[in-house]
Simulated assay, not measured.
Amino acid sequence: MSSRAGLRFFQSARFSRAFTKKSLGRRYQTADATAAPAEGILQRLWNSPVGVKTVHFWAPVMKWSIVLAGVSDFARPAESLSLTQNIALTATGVIWTRWCFVIKPRNLLLAAVNFFLGCVGVTQVTRILLYQRSQEAASAGQIVEKDAKDVANTVKGITTDPEGAAQKAVK
């Protein structure tokens, strides 16, 4: 039964007549002999709604400089980076990446630059937060060292003058 259904499909869809030499010649001919030739790739880019002569092209091109500045900050030490500035870069990248898919005409070049701006911001914020966490751990270590020195001095005082240490403890 299944082979018969396939046979019926090909017969009813005019499959056998669709690929004859006569129909192929007529199928791809245009009705109007004076039709305009197809646009080239550069002409389509020039006339596109997000093409070279619009702000939809030049705004993302210029915004790449912000991304490159963020990438160049990878070489700077984390203590010299601004957390608020990098949070703003991250938020800008995330919000505008989403917005680029909502607005018309949809601008994929702008979406790409904003996505990378968000990635750079997330990387820098992570670097800054890891640096701050390491500083907190270092300061906690310094507190422990100070307390250990105080205890060592107290023990040293008790061993050298036990009566004086006992009188200090009573007071």
Results as ranks from 00 to 15, higher is better:
39 E>N: 12
77 P>E: 03
148 A>V: 07
29 Q>H: 10
109 L>F: 05
149 K>R: 14
27 R>V: 01
129 L>C: 04
164 G>L: 04
25 G>A: 14
57 F>E: 07
102 V>P: 01
162 P>H: 03
51 G>P: 04
44 R>F: 06
101 F>G: 13
26 R>P: 02
74 F>P: 04
168 K>V: 12
41 I>E: 14
91 A>E: 09
153 N>V: 15
92 T>M: 15
165 A>P: 06
128 I>L: 02
26 R>D: 06
97 T>V: 06
107 N>H: 11
163 E>H: 06
53 K>Y: 11
112 A>Q: 11
161 D>H: 02
95 I>V: 13
125 V>F: 03
167 Q>Y: 04
35 A>F: 04
121 G>V: 02
52 V>Y: 05
145 E>C: 08
83 L>N: 03
87 I>C: 01
103 I>G: 10
78 A>F: 00
117 L>T: 10
24 L>G: 09
112 A>E: 09
162 P>C: 05
69 A>P: 04
57 F>T: 13
148 A>C: 05
58 W>I: 15
135 Q>E: 03
74 F>I: 03
168 K>C: 05
95 I>P: 06
134 S>T: 10
160 T>H: 09
33 A>S: 14
43 Q>H: 14
120 V>T: 10
100 C>A: 15
101 F>M: 13
71 V>D: 15
152 A>Y: 06
69 A>K: 08
65 S>K: 06
72 S>D: 03
33 A>Y: 02
67 V>D: 05
134 S>N: 11
111 A>I: 10
92 T>A: 14
62 M>L: 14
127 R>Y: 00
93 G>K: 01
67 V>E: 03
89 L>D: 08
100 C>D: 14
104 K>G: 06
124 Q>W: 00
35 A>T: 13
168 K>L: 09
105 P>L: 02
25 G>T: 14
150 D>M: 08
145 E>A: 12
68 L>G: 10
163 E>K: 09
67 V>N: 01
104 K>E: 10
78 A>E: 05
53 K>C: 14
68 L>Y: 12
140 A>P: 02
114 N>G: 09
37 P>Y: 08
103 I>R: 12
104 K>Q: 13
119 C>G: 12
153 N>Y: 10
153 N>Q: 11
80 S>R: 05
154 T>H: 13
161 D>K: 00
103 I>C: 07
85 Q>A: 12
119 C>W: 05
71 V>P: 10
121 G>Q: 02
137 A>L: 07
110 L>P: 07
89 L>H: 09
154 T>E: 13
58 W>Q: 08
151 V>T: 15
135 Q>M: 03
107 N>M: 08
63 K>W: 13
42 L>F: 15
167 Q>W: 00
77 P>R: 09
45 L>N: 15
60 P>N: 09
61 V>F: 05
64 W>T: 15
135 Q>K: 10
42 L>H: 14
